[in-house]
Amino acid sequence: MFKEFKEFAMKGNVLDLAVGVVIGGAFGKIVTSLVNDIIMPIIGALTGGINFTYLKFVIKEAGGGKEALTLNYGNFIQNIIDFLIVSFSIFLFIKLINKLKREKKVEVVKVEVKPSEEVLLLQEIRDLLKNREV
């Protein structure tokens, strides 16, 4: 059983996946910081300082030692905005990486090689023989 697990864990795809998860987690922190620390303050300034997180609809008021029953739709809106910003940021990042990959490609130049005199002579003989047979 240990041998099977070792073979499974050492497959290239599993290692690639592990590296992807670790890098993805680190990238997620960067994107979250971008959203929370840079983009959301700008959106807040553009919308007049509205913080969607605290928007809610009160279903039942607090009373008798119980908390109010609320529908926190603002938090839902905030999560949608976060998702859109994160997905757009990832899209731009992937687009940048693909652009860098395309720039690295080596351009293949076609070089036309002129046939030697012997080859030209053989081609001429071939063509004469074709015309003779007809």
Rank of each mutant, 00 (worst) to 15 (best):
N51S: 13
L71S: 03
K60M: 14
T53W: 08
Y54K: 15
G74I: 00
E133D: 08
F52M: 14
E4G: 07
E107P: 07
E112W: 09
V31L: 12
I59Y: 08
E112S: 11
F88H: 00
G25C: 08
E61C: 08
L34W: 02
P115Q: 14
F2R: 15
G48Y: 04
L128P: 03
F27G: 02
F88I: 05
E61I: 03
E124A: 10
L46F: 09
G28N: 13
N79F: 02
L121F: 10
M1K: 14
F57E: 06
E67V: 08
K66Q: 12
K99Y: 05
N51E: 13
N75A: 14
K110Y: 12
L55E: 04
M10R: 14
K104Q: 11
I94E: 02
M1Q: 15
K130H: 13
V19D: 01
I125R: 10
Q78R: 13
T47P: 05
V22M: 14
K110F: 13
L55P: 02
I50L: 15
K101W: 04
F88V: 09
G12M: 04
S116C: 06
D127G: 00
G49R: 11
L84S: 07
T47R: 05
G74F: 06
K60A: 09
M40G: 07
F57C: 10
V22E: 01
L55A: 11
N98V: 07
E117A: 13
L34A: 04
G20Q: 10
S87R: 08
